[in-house]
Simulated assay, not measured.
Amino acid sequence: MDNLTDPLAGLDDVPWKSLHHAYGPAVDVPDQLRALRSAEVPVRREALSALFGNVYHQGTRWGASCHVVPFLVALADDPDTPDRAAVADLLRSVVLGDRRDDELPFDPRRAFAAAEGITDKQAALVERHLEAEDLFDHEEVAELADGVAVRWEADAFHAGARHTDRYVRWLTDPDPQLAGYAAELLAWFAPDEAALAGLIAVPDDEAHAATRASANLTLGHCPVSSEPIDACLHQLLAAKAEVVRVTAAVGLAYRLGDQLPDQALDILTDARTSDSDADVPGWDRSVPGFVALALHRLGLG
């Protein structure tokens, strides 16, 4: 991003007073987003915690949540923002909620089917009664609440889907945590040519091992048939870093099933008895967990 560009440009143009989060009108959100740029660590931590509670409250998204997404993307994209990986972590939570890798490949149409037909007017009605704490006194409105909650999830997801070009750019960021988060984020959106090229191109060296491992898992979950993906993962079976070799084998197991090459199966079998408990940035499941799941898919777990 051009350093002359303000990542929070347009923040005051959003009608925060008419948007709601977990605790009412989202009037406090602009200052919380601004505080993520503070030079003071306690200020940033407090703002991050407040935003988690407001727009991602125990996994629930709200009407304001989707409006936060483009600003979080812009903040994480700006090298002058402190703690960019922490911002990306919040972004992931707002866009995806508590979804885990067992929902991959992700089908948003199926996941958000309950939101179909929910109107802005209905969502606003539910928000008003939630704020008044009398939702369950109005049966017809209460019946809308679940559909409206899914509508808010869908809005946040689609807001995140508009920025996959940024996530691809983060794959080359020197911060391995941010780059790893970016690779995992890309697993949730329909793969395009740029995303696949970026994931394949992540270097296989010590500095990029964590990012490469995250990219391997994303490629493994990719729902498209692709010789370049399979060739990339096969080549990485010989990588120096164990976490890269193992995640490449996991990815191939997911993609090839019983056509898995012996080299990959040997890596998975050895990894099953390894003492390694490595995690990969952006993924909730540990590497041993992925190994166990891959072997289970092969009928060996």
Results as ranks from 00 to 15, higher is better:
Leu90Glu: 09
His296Thr: 15
Thr218Asn: 07
Ser276Glu: 13
Leu8Cys: 12
Ala248Lys: 04
Arg34His: 09
Pro30Gln: 10
Ala294Trp: 07
Ala292His: 12
Asp230Ile: 05
Gln122Arg: 08
Ala154Asn: 01
Ser49Gln: 14
Ala76Ile: 06
Leu186Thr: 05
Ala239Phe: 04
Leu33His: 09
Asp258Leu: 12
Arg99Asn: 03
Gly257Phe: 10
Ala248Arg: 08
Asp6His: 03
Leu178Gln: 10
Ala85Asp: 13
Asp173Phe: 01
Asp101Ile: 07
His21Leu: 08
Ala142His: 04
Ala207Arg: 12
Val73Leu: 07
Ala39Met: 08
Asp89Thr: 13
Pro191Phe: 01
Val244Arg: 06
Leu236Ala: 15
Arg162Tyr: 00
Leu236Cys: 14
Glu143Gln: 13
His138Ala: 05
Ala187His: 06
Gly10Trp: 09
Ala113Gly: 01
Val246Glu: 12
Pro223Cys: 02
Tyr56Ala: 15
Trp283Pro: 06
Gly289His: 03
Val291Asn: 04
Pro82Arg: 02
Ala9Asp: 15
Asp13Asn: 14
Pro7Glu: 06
Asp192Val: 05
Val29Lys: 07
Ser226Lys: 02
Leu36Lys: 04
Gly10Asp: 11
Val29Ile: 15
Pro30Asp: 11
Asp165His: 12
Leu90Pro: 06
Asp134Arg: 02
Asp279Asn: 12
Ala85Tyr: 11
Tyr254Ser: 13
Gly282His: 02
Gly160Trp: 01
His21Met: 06
Arg128Gln: 15
Glu133Pro: 00
Trp170Leu: 04
Phe157Ile: 08
Gln177Leu: 14
Ala145Ile: 03
Ala145Gly: 05
Ala249Gln: 12
His234Pro: 00
Ala239His: 06
Leu96Thr: 09
Asp6Trp: 08
His57Leu: 00
Pro191Ser: 03
Gly147Glu: 09
Ala215Gln: 10
Phe52Ser: 08
Tyr167Phe: 15
Ala197Lys: 07
His163Leu: 07
Tyr167Arg: 04
Ser214Met: 01
Pro228Asp: 11
Thr164Leu: 01
Arg285Gln: 14
Val95Thr: 13
Ala161Arg: 09
Gly257Asp: 12
Asp266Arg: 14
Pro108Met: 04
Leu33Val: 11
Glu206Asp: 14
Leu196Gly: 01
Asp258Phe: 00
Asp12Cys: 05
Leu96Ser: 12
Asp270Cys: 01
Pro261Met: 11
Asp77Gln: 10
Val243Gly: 06
Leu252Gln: 10
Gly160Asp: 11
Trp283Thr: 08
Ser276Gly: 14
Glu116Cys: 01
Gly160Gln: 06
Met1Val: 14
Leu295Thr: 07
Pro281Trp: 06
Arg99Ile: 15
Ala47Leu: 08
Ala145Thr: 05
Pro176Asn: 09
Val224Cys: 01
Gly180Tyr: 04
Leu8His: 09
Asp6Lys: 03
Leu252Cys: 08
Ala182Leu: 02
Thr269Tyr: 01
Ala111Ile: 03
Asp279Leu: 12
Ala9Ser: 15
Pro42Glu: 11
Gly97Leu: 09
Leu298Ser: 10
Tyr56Met: 09
Trp283Asn: 04
Gly301Gln: 08
Tyr56Phe: 14
Ala213Pro: 03
Ala39Trp: 05
